[in-house]
Design a protein around this nucleic acid. Structure first.
Lengths: 189, 189
DNA sequence: TGGCTTCCAATACAAGCGTATAAATCGTAG
DNA sequence: CTACGATTTATACGCTTGTATTGGAAGCCA
C-alpha cells in the first residue's frame, strides 16, 4: 500500500513490493494472484477500515472519546493518502467511496436548508474540496512547511477550513463542536 | 498531453504517443529526446499558457470581455486536466505552479483582514480545495451526471462554491462580480 | 511417522519498455 | 541538377515487467 501510495499503481512493481516486504516476488503472486487483484485487496482493506471507523464514530458515539480520536489520528493518515492516490489512479473501489461520501454529505445538507438549493452540487463540491487536501497533501505540506498529517499543520488546516466555509454547511452544532475540538487540541499543545 | 492526462506519466508509452500522433516512435525521440524531456516540454507549454492567460486577464483587463472568457473556456479545460494529473504525478513544474498559486492567493488574502489570521494556511487550503475539483474532475463529473468542463455542470459547481465559501475571502467586490458573471451566463442559456 | 495441503523461493519466459543507431526520405539552397 | 541538412522511419538492443512453472520447506492431521 505504501508503494502504491507513493508511486501509483502502474509505476509500482511486484518485485519492488516483494523486496519492501522482505519476501520473494513469487510469494506476492501466490497470496494475491495478479497485480490487479492485489490492488483490489488493498482497496478493500482501506475502504473497509474507513467504513468501520466511520460506523464506530457515528453510531458508537465515540466521536468525543479521546482514545478513539487519538487512535484514528495515528492510523488513518497512510490510509487517507492511499485513498487520495487511488482516486486519481482509476481504482474502481475509490470511485465507489467518493460516490458514497457525496451521498452522505448530500443527506446531511438536505436536512436544514431551503429546498430550492442545489444540494447535490454543494455536496459534490464539498467532498471534492475536502478530498482535494488529501490528494494534494504533498503540495499542501510543502507549502505549509510541515507534514499535514502531523498535529501542528493539521491544526492550521482544520482552522483554516473552519474560517473559509460558511458555518451553516457543517450544521451550527457540528461547527461549534469542531471549533471546540480544535481549541481543545490546541490547548494541549 | 492527452495521454499523459488520461493515463499518467508512467503508464503512457512513447509508442502510444507516436501512434496517437500518427508518426513513428523514433520521431518523438528525435524532437524531444527522452521521455522525461517530453514531460518537461508539456509542463512548460501548459504552465506558460496559464501564466500568459492569467496575465492577459488581470493586467490586460480582459476579465469582462466575453470573447476572452469564451476563448478561455474553450481552450483551458484540457490544460487544467493536465495540470491536475501532473500535480499528483510528481511533476516538478506542477509543484512550482502550486506554490505560485498559493503565494498569489496569500497576497490577495493578506489585503483586507485582521493581521492575526493565518493567511498562509488559508491560502494553502483555498488553492488545494480549488484544485481538488480539477484533480478529481472525473469523479465530480460522474457524481453530477455531466462533464464539469461543460457549461451546465460548470455553472452548478461555480454556484455551489459561491454558496459554500464565506464571501469575504473572494473580496466582497470580486464575489459580487463572480455572482453577476454566473447569473449572466445562466441567463444566456 | 506418513501423507497432504499450505507456504515460499527460484527460475523461466514472453511481452513491452525506453532508447540508441543507422538507413531512408524530404525540402531546399547553391 | 545536385548536394547537404533536417525529418522521418526502421531496426535492434538491453532491460524490466507481469506471470507461469517448478520444486522444495514447513506445518498439520490421522
Amino acid at each position: 500500500m505504501g508503494l502504491f501510495t507513493e508511486q501509483g499503481f502502474k509505476a509500482t512493481t511486484i518485485r519492488g513490493i516483494a523486496t519492501a516486504a522482505g519476501v520473494s516476488p513469487g510469494l506476492v503472486q501466490h497470496h494475491f494472484g495478479t497485480k490487479e487483484e492485489l490492488r483490489q485487496a488493498c482497496d478493500e482493506y482501506v475502504l473497509g477500515y474507513m467504513r468501520e471507523q466511520a460506523g464506530l464514530g457515528v453510531t458508537g458515539r465515540n466521536l468525543e472519546k479521546p482514545e478513539f480520536i487519538e487512535n484514528v489520528h495515528r492510523t488513518a493518515p497512510p490510509l487517507m493518502k492511499y485513498l487520495g492516490r487511488a482516486l486519481v489512479d482509476g481504482s474502481p473501489g475509490a470511485a465507489a467511496m467518493f460516490a458514497e461520501l457525496v451521498n452522505v454529505t448530500e443527506e446531511h445538507l438536505a436536512g436544514d436548508e431551503n429546498p430550492e438549493a442545489d444540494h447535490r452540487a454543494r455536496a459534490v463540491v464539498l467532498t471534492a474540496m475536502k478530498l482535494g487536501i488529501t490528494v494534494l497533501h504533498e503540495h499542501v505540506s510543502r507549502a505549509l512547511g510541515s507534514d499535514v498529517y502531523a498535529a501542528p499543520a493539521a491544526l492550521r488546516v482544520g482552522k483554516a477550513q473552519l474560517d473559509l466555509f460558511r458555518p451553516e454547511f457543517l450544521g451550527r452544532e457540528l461547527f461549534e463542536q469542531a471549533r471546540k475540538g480544535l481549541a481543545k487540541v490546541e490547548g494541549e499543545r
